[in-house]
């Protein structure tokens, strides 16, 4: 059974990491979560990114967050990737399976997955 004591242990373990995180280079994965995104399946995509990034050992320098409607509702779920000194990459019509591929090839491998982007 999960207890608050367990959460306190997580806090103690995390203290050092928080400091480390502030200094490290950040990549932001931003999922469109307006009505259009949610209806098209953004929630499982976001969840796939959160868990996949953790499993790939990338959670120290990749954060996952949300945005509203960016105006291309017909291409939802839309995921934007922001990286310092690089142009924003916009992935469209995402699924949890495509998310796994983007984590592997883009976030881990550093190569944009051209098949899934919109220019």
């Amino acid at each position: 059974m999960k207890s608050l004591a367990e959460l306190a242990a997580i806090r103690d373990k995390m203290k050092d990491k928080v400091v480390l995180r502030e200094g490290s280079s950040q990549i932001r994965v931003v999922v469109g979560m307006a009505t259009c995104g949610i209806a098209a399946g953004a929630r499982p995509v976001l969840s796939a990114f959160v868990e996949g990034i953790n499993n790939a050992g990338l959670s120290a320098n990749v954060t996952v967050t949300q945005t509203g409607c960016i105006g291309i509702c017909q291409y939802e779920p839309v995921v934007e990737i922001y990286e310092a000194d690089k142009e924003k990459v916009t992935y469209v019509k995402m699924t949890p399976e495509k998310a796994a591929e983007v984590i592997e090839r883009h976030l881990k491998g550093g190569k944009v997955v051209e098949e899934y982007i919109i220019k």
Partner: peptide
């Protein structure tokens, strides 16, 4: 319980 540790830390 968490104090400064953000709620969206993966753990």
């Amino acid at each position: 319980v968490l104090k400064d540790v953000p709620l969206n830390s993966i753990e």
